[in-house]
């Protein structure tokens, strides 16, 4: 099969393109996503290829964008809404928490919509363009939450997210857009939601993570392998709701030491859920207390020196792993 090298961003675009080609009921809209191609250019070329009827700009109205998507989805379309930044989705939380999420439970209507939301920092975006809000979405009944870390996962998961009969929050990491490349086949199979992936085997400890931190964890693992011969397993959660508890428990069973890493805030972050899961189901398997590496509970700072102190990275992960293994 022919292969291509693709960035994370290009892989998302390939997934969207295939959906637009194959499924007439798919449409894509958001702020500046038309001819301009979106703030990050994920949708570049799609309006030209599929027309203004399928790919179009909207006013800056997050609540109306999501509300309209609920209306469209309940009438047989599969709208894909791009939020310019996940941060701005907070002006429309009620449309997700109170409208899209509970609709099927309340009324029996399926709501097959997808919200694409660029997340994360590491590039001086400051407090309003760097947030990681996955744990908020995970709190909302009826939503699914997906967060790919690799190009191949990004295209396979966007396909499944859009085809899912439920509202799906598809989180995209801005740092990964252009930093991560993968050589992969030019064709792809959808990747089912709800499955984690062990992206590095290991026996001494496991890192449970997702998004940009998968790559930081892999970097830390390589370093520890070279420097200390520690073999670290890295599990990429990929879907955060509903999440893959079985893979987590199997990983803990194989390693007995658990580090949970995420880019966003620590208190009530998604890591707290994973820690609780491990404590509830695998406490007896642990050789050391569960550890977390996450952002401190402060707004995302702007200055590079502050953001470096704020954001988890391979160094911080490596230190925590050594302490965990040498506990």
């Amino acid at each position: 099969m022919p292969t291509v090298e693709m960035t994370y961003l290009e892989a998302i675009r390939q997934g969207l393109r295939r959906l637009l080609q194959e499924r007439n009921e798919v449409l894509l809209y958001g702020e500046d996503v038309g001819a301009f191609g979106g703030a990050f250019k994920v949708t570049l070329g799609l309006q030209e290829e599929f027309g203004k009827d399928r790919v179009f700009n909207t006013p800056i109205s997050e609540s109306a964008m999501i509300g309209a998507a609920i209306g469209m989805a309940t009438q047989g379309l599969r709208p894909v809404v791009e939020l310019q930044f996940v941060d701005f989705g907070m002006t429309a939380v009620h449309q997700l928490l109170n409208n899209a999420g509970p609709t099927h439970y309340r009324t029996g209507l399926s709501v097959p919509l997808t919200i694409r939301a660029p997340c994360g920092g590491g590039f001086g975006g400051g407090p309003f363009h760097s947030e990681e809000l996955e744990s908020l979405f995970c709190l909302m009944p009826g939503l699914k939450v997906v967060y790919p870390a690799f190009p191949s996962d990004a295209r396979g998961l966007i396909y499944s997210a859009v085809m899912d009969p439920n509202p799906v929050i598809y989180l995209e990491n801005k740092y990964l857009y252009r930093h991560v490349k993968e050589v992969m086949s030019d064709r792809f199979d959808p990747i089912p939601l709800g499955l984690a992936r062990i992206c590095r085997p290991g026996r001494d400890a496991v890192v449970l993570t997702y998004g940009a931190m998968v790559h930081e964890a892999l970097r830390a693992a390589e370093r520890l392998s070279a420097e200390k011969h520690y073999e670290i397993m890295v599990v990429d959660m990929r879907t955060l709701k509903p999440y893959d508890a079985e893979t987590v428990i199997a990983a803990v069973t194989a390693t007995n030491r658990v580090l949970i890493v995420h880019e966003g805030w620590r208190t009530c972050g998604f890591g707290a859920e994973l820690a609780a899961l491990v404590a509830e189901r695998a406490f007896h398997l642990l050789d050391a207390p569960i550890r977390r590496v996450a952002a401190p509970d402060v707004p995302v700072p702007f200055a590079p020196s502050l953001e470096k102190a704020y954001r988890p990275d391979a160094d911080k992960i490596g230190e925590a792993l050594v302490e965990l293994i040498e506990y």
């Binding site: 109205s61 609540s63 109306a64 964008m65 999501i66 509300g67 309209a68 998507a69 609920i70 209306g71 469209m72 309940t74 009438q75 047989g76 379309l77 709208p79 009620h94 449309q95 109170n98 409208n99 509970p102 609709t103 309340r106 009324t107």
Partner: peptide, 22 residues
Amino acid sequence: VYAMISHLGAMLSVVTGAVMAR
């Protein structure tokens, strides 16, 4: 007929999107 949610105003865009779809 759409089932309203309590949040006042939230359904206006829903019916708008639904009409667009139809």
